[in-house]
Amino acid sequence: MLELYGKTLSSRLLLGTSRYPSPAILQEAVRTCGAQVVTVSLRRESGAERSGQAFWSLVRDLDVAVLPNTAGCHTVKEAVTTAHMAREVFGTPWIKLEVTGDDELLQPDVFGLVEAARILCAEGFEVFPYTTEDLGVAHRLLEAGCRVLMPWGAPIGSGRGLANPWALCALRTRFADVPLIVDAGLGVPSHAATAMELGCDGVLLNTAVAQAGDPVKMAGAFARAVEAGRMAYLAGPMEPRDLAVPSTPTLGKAFLA
């Protein structure tokens, strides 16, 4: 079981809610993959006003935990304000903190991220920081009060998979007790499986499912990959070897040394 800020989850797949062909397909995708946490972007859909309510009620119908994000925020001030709005609209202390540092690749501004995390944690928010794989930044985020880390796999929406698996291993080793959720950049289920095999605690994705030819089917595929990867991690994968080793004993054959 995965525990995030005291909430126990049996599913290790977190799903974003934007860019699906329709809200009905989004709902079906969430149900199919069994995600228990969905992220929602506050800025664009103006959930604060009455205007976006119809969409929110479709998300609420799913009966899953909502993790609002601060996507589209470029400054600490914007991110903090958006977090306040999100707490009011969704009635949750959870916030997926994004502070964009580069518009092209939507890379996090890790300096602003740490600063905003410090402010929000002090205010009682439970912060899920979207960060890079940098260990120094991770230390700062944990010092600021974060109890979950969300390192990227690759830039948001790029579908490139894990750009730096070794760094994720390093994060895993260094922060053995902190839940690590790989957020962003996954394209196909094998990417998710790899992240889980490395020992990550969960994955968060959106585009790979929403923009698939059949989002519902792809959601199911990712759910299985995440489960397979997790099981593999727990099972203890074999070490790669340079020498071929026959898996069937060769009985009765002379051993020529």
Partner: peptide, 9 residues
């Protein structure tokens, strides 16, 4: 055109 935003404003 055109944007597609979940909002009725």
């Amino acid at each position: 055109g055109a944007t597609t935003i979940e909002s009725d404003d």
